[in-house]
Design a protein around this nucleic acid. Structure first.
Length: 789
DNA sequence: GTGGGGCCTG
DNA sequence: CAGGCCCCAC
């Protein structure tokens, strides 16, 4: 290793404090040079693309900046307060819902006073709407939702004003007696739209008489003007952009219909998700309430509920077994019946159900309490348990049907638009980490389910940040990719096939050079992108927590104690190699004719694996049936950390040997190397820190320094590389750590740290202290073997 | 030109 | 921990 401390080098270092050590350049040079020859070309292309796209993206950002910021303005969908607002906490509100539901069975009029002429579902919806607007999710409508539609502000303003003054206007789809009962949301939407259209046309007519009107009938300066917070300035910005206010008004009006539709959709989705949440809440409540009943009963109920939940996303939901078997062709089984259901019917039906089922339950398995009395004519005097259970059945059916229809309707609505509807973005961060268990393929669906798409289904939480697909040319898309990009899971099988084919025929041609192969190279099929919502909706995992940040759902997919950590790490693991590479996709998809394609490209490239197009194209059949996987898992990270106890500077060849269960490509190699680089960084930082601390503590000679398993330095290191402390750190590592600490100590004492590259000498010493990594680390199952010892 | 190392930043 | 950047050796 030549000491490259030339003057020029030092000069540069004064800028960046370069401390290149230049070690370890010999070990893997032969093998890696061949790899280098293969990958050199693509890498250059990628870099060029990245540069070009950066420029274009910035242009795009500028050109769209106005509209984007506009979309952020005036974003408050719901006003505070209002008659239907459930301002209590989530739990409280949900228990309130349950209470109301149960209460209504006894006294319909009483409980339904605030919401006359509505069904349970409508009340739920109304609560949800109020709650959503109430501010618990403050902020999300602002960016995430509004971004969905650049023109949303006016609609939002409309929502504000409408709900302030005439709540039924915006709520009408769910507030009208029959509307909600039938759940024919689509029809109601039309109705609703007609009403709004009439209003708009009136406005237009009025406008023609008063050209100076700025934003007719859209009082963004509604009582909630202040609430729009910051929106006013942005709004002004947009006004300045437009030459004529009248023109602007007209344009806005033209856009208004779109916005209205989008607003409807948003609200539908909001309601849907909250209904789902509350449905789960109901489940929980029922389980708790009837926990005291005998086990079989409990299990039956439990299963029924779960079955119903599971069936909810199906077109023809299966009713609960009890209802189906007991009453055969009971009218409750008819979906049409649901349309005619009104609160009164519901109550009657619930009572009838109570009677019937109480009798049946009595006949089947008489219980010790209350059952005898339930025999009494009328059966309404049955015990709370029996009554509640049967009410539960009824509720289940109600909810089931309602959910089915709502889902169908929403799916229909969202399948309609020819272009991507303003999707809500879904917060990837809200996904419980265990949702994407590991990258190992432990989850059989993991390789066939695009986690990004799964995000859509799992989390129905609008994300103001992760709105990559929301808005055309959304400038923030590039940096808003915050989490959980799949490095490992690069494509579904079909996608993989396509991509591979492209790679095979394209040779060195980057997929970006083939417009026709865009979607293939993106690993994404346009149709599914056009309908991002229906797909995940149908696959909505009702059984799993609805992105409830509060947790509380016991179901965990992992039993390993540190599975949470590992899973969490997994998500971050997948973020590798996005920036430089997906920029290429962005550039590729940045068609001038389709400004929105930039956003699409973003999302597409995010969905696709970042390294897929850069990896060896000859790799068409990825180790079928073998244990070799395409990505690094949290276990690999853990293993790498343990390996760090032996080697601080592993060569790429060594990494390939010790990670033989990973299919290596440039990305994997880079990532592994980066891991060790990060390990070293932490290691050296700790060393410097403790060396300085020792100096401050009055230590005069490095001989006084030692690293034992008790010392704080070791604990810090062990916590970092061996968090679970389930691995016995080799003594050799203690020695190396001690040497390192002394080196730092001596260097600092000697005042060498004034030299920007003062650490380089230390690195050169430490890099020679690597020891052999035990053979056991070559085993793919080394973690088990190591940790079981 | 590429791989790999370190530094800085988020 | 990853991305970006710079640097150097090969």
């Amino acid at each position: 290793m030549p000491d490259h401390d030339s003057d020029s080098f030092l000069n540069r270092q004064t800028k960046r404090r370069r401390v290149d050590i230049g070690v370890k350049r010999t070990v893997g040079s032969t093998a890696s040079s061949t790899v280098a020859a293969v990958t050199a070309t693509t890498d250059n292309i990628a870099r060029a693309k990245a540069a070009i796209f950066s420029a274009m993206n910035s242009l795009s950002s500028h050109s769209h900046h106005g509209s984007d910021t506009d979309s952020m303005e005036c974003s408050v969908v719901q006003p505070h307060g209002g008659p239907g607002v459930v301002s209590a906490s989530d739990n409280e509100s949900k228990s309130n819902v349950l209470r109301k539901l149960l209460k209504r069975a006894n006294s319909y009029e009483d409980a339904m006073m605030p919401f006359p002429g509505t069904t349970i579902i409508s009340q739920l919806l109304k609560n949800n709407m109020a709650k959503n607007g109430g501010g618990g999710d403050a902020g999300f409508p602002g960016s995430g939702l509004s971004n969905a539609s650049p023109d949303a502000p006016q609609e939002d303003a409309c929502s504000n004003s409408s709900q302030d003054s005439t709540p039924p206007e915006c709520m009408s789809p769910f507030g009208r007696p029959h509307g909600l009962a039938t759940f024919d949301i689509e029809r109601l939407n039309d109705e609703h739209m007609r009403a709004k259209r009439a209003r708009v046309e009136n406005i237009i007519r009025g406008m023609s008489h008063s050209p100076s009107v700025v934003i007719p009938a859209q009082p963004p300066s509604s009582p909630r003007g202040g609430e729009v917070c910051g929106g006013s300035s942005r709004e002004n910005k947009r006004k300045q952009r437009l030459p004529q206010q009248q023109q602007q008004s007209f344009t806005q009006l033209v856009c208004q219909r779109k916005e209205q539709k989008q607003e409807e959709r948003r609200q539908l989705k909001l309601q849907l998700e909250d209904m789902q949440k509350q449905l789960r809440q109901l489940q929980e409540k029922f389980f708790q309430i009837y926990d005291s009943t005998d086990d079989s009963e409990h299990n039956d109920l439990h299963n029924d509920l779960h079955n119903d939940i599971g069936n909810m996303s199906e077109d023809s939901p299966s009713r609960s077994d009890a209802a189906a078997d007991d009453r055969g062709g009971d009218d409750l089984r008819s979906d049409n019946e649901m349309s005619d259901l009104d609160p009164g019917h519901f109550l009657d039906r619930a009572r009838a159900l109570l009677q019937e089922q109480a009798l049946l339950a009595d006949g089947e398995k008489p219980r010790r309490e209350g059952i005898s009395r339930s025999k009494a004519p009328g059966g309404l005097s049955s015990s709370m348990h029996a009554e509640g259970k049967q009410l539960a059945e009824t509720l289940k059916q109600e909810l089931n049907s309602a959910m089915t229809q709502v889902v169908d309707t929403v799916v229909k609505v969202f399948a309609k638009p020819p272009r991507p509807p303003p999707q809500q973005a879904f917060h990837p961060l809200s996904i419980p980490p265990e949702r994407f268990p590991t990258v190992n393929g432990d989850n059989p669906n993991f390789h066939t389910t695009n986690p990004r798409l799964q995000c859509f289904g799992d989390v129905i939480i609008p994300n103001p940040l992760d709105s990559f697909a929301n808005m055309p040319g959304m400038p923030g898309a590039t940096n808003d990719q915050t989490e959980a990009l799949p490095l490992v899971v690069r494509k579904t099988p079909s996608e993989h096939h396509q991509s591979s084919a492209v790679g095979a025929q394209g040779g060195h041609h980057h997929p970006a050079l083939h417009p026709s192969s865009l979607s293939a190279s993106m690993g994404f099929s346009p149709p599914s992108f056009r309908h991002p919502f229906p797909l995940p909706l149908m696959g909505y995992p009702f059984q799993s927590p609805l992105g409830a940040p509060t947790g509380g759902y016991p179901g965990k997919e992992h039993s390993s104690p540190d599975s949470m950590d590992l899973s969490r790490e997994t998500t971050s693991l997948r973020t590798k190699m996005t920036s430089g590479h997906h920029l290429g996709h962005h550039h590729r998809s940045c068609s001038p004719a389709h400004p929105g394609s930039t956003a699409e490209g973003l999302s597409l490239s995010l969905i696709k694996s970042e390294c897929g197009d850069l990896q060896d194209m000859s790799d068409i059949s990825p180790y079928p049936g073998s244990n070799i996987q395409e990505g690094l898992s949290p276990n690999h990270l853990k293993k790498a950390k343990l390996m760090f106890f032996y080697t601080r500077y592993p060569s790429s060849n060594m990494l390939k040997m010790f990670f033989s269960d990973v299919k290596f490509n440039r990305c994997i190699t880079s990532q592994l190397i980066k891991w060790f680089s990060n390990f070293r960084e932490f290691y050296y930082i700790q060393m410097e820190k403790f060396a300085r601390q020792a100096i401050n503590d009055g230590v005069t000679g490095s001989e006084e320094l030692s690293v034992s398993r008790d010392c704080e330095l070791f604990r810090a290191l062990n916590m970092h590389y061996n968090k679970a402390n389930d691995f016995e750190v080799p003594d050799r590592f203690l020695e190396v750590a001690e040497v390192t600490l002394r080196e730092f100590f001596n260097a600092i004492v000697a005042g060498k740290d004034v030299d920007p590259s003062w650490k380089k000498a230390i690195y050169k010493v430490i890099c020679k202290l690597d020891s052999e990594v035990p053979e056991v680390f070559k085993s793919p199952n080394c973690l088990q073997e190591l940790l079981h010892e």
